[in-house]
Design a protein around this nucleic acid. Structure first.
Lengths: 111, 111
DNA sequence: CCTTTATATACCTTGACACGTATATGCTCT
DNA sequence: AGAGCATATACGTGTCAAGGTATATAAAGG
């Protein structure tokens, strides 16, 4: 999963698809990427469940599937807790600084 | 950035550090990973700004830095919008189904 | 000082993967 | 049926990164 989105071209493709579905040719043109490259990355993305495709005559329309990226999001959850805890700690620290300094200069930090 | 967290051992190290700072040896033991491997991954993580270290006698204590993972989180933002839009669409769809069926059977989906 | 402990680095080998080029598959339209 | 377009796949090549083993650096303690 993480290996998949480690590849810059694949991330570019995913970012393209977030707005709407696209054919291979459209992706190829917008990203200025040789067609076999696009097809191969799409294959990887499809097999990993990041995208799915439907047939439209000779074209294939690719669109995003949410699940894998949601798992990435889920993996990030503990870290989000970590850094928001840090912001809290920083705020408490600043508040304490505030307590200490407000006796000297009579201004107060806004909340 | 994405390349960094694509490596499973590095993700394991990051997950360890989310609870509290750890020395190289502690990481080595908890993850059952040879020491040079740990050191090399920590170097990569440090140079990419995912962790920082302080010296404690012969030990080095490594702790998380939030910024890089926050950037990953930021990259995910558009996709979060994408899939919550989809949940919304699904809900609207179910509500419409509800409208259509409630005339036949007199029960109503709970909100 | 010398040994032990903790961590970092050097070197080598191996495997995976991304790319380019060429070619195959498949659909459409005349 | 044949030409042309859209997409997929096959193959050969180069690069890079991870792992293992050995060794270097450095601090602690007797």
């Amino acid at each position: 999963m993480f290996e998949i989105i480690a590849e810059p071209n694949r991330r570019a493709i995913l970012s393209l698809l977030v707005s709407s579905q696209q054919s291979v040719g459209e992706i190829e043109r917008q990203l200025r990427m040789p067609q076999p490259t696009v097809s191969k990355h799409l294959r990887v993305l499809r097999e990993a469940g990041f995208v799915e495709s439907t047939v439209d005559a000779q074209r294939r329309l690719y669109r995003l599937k949410p699940e894998p990226l949601q798992e990435v999001d889920a993996w990030l959850a503990p870290f989000r807790r970590f850094w928001s805890a840090h912001v809290d700690a920083l705020e408490r620290h600043l508040d304490r600084m505030d307590q200490l300094t407000q006796t000297k200069r009579k201004t107060r930090r806004r909340r």
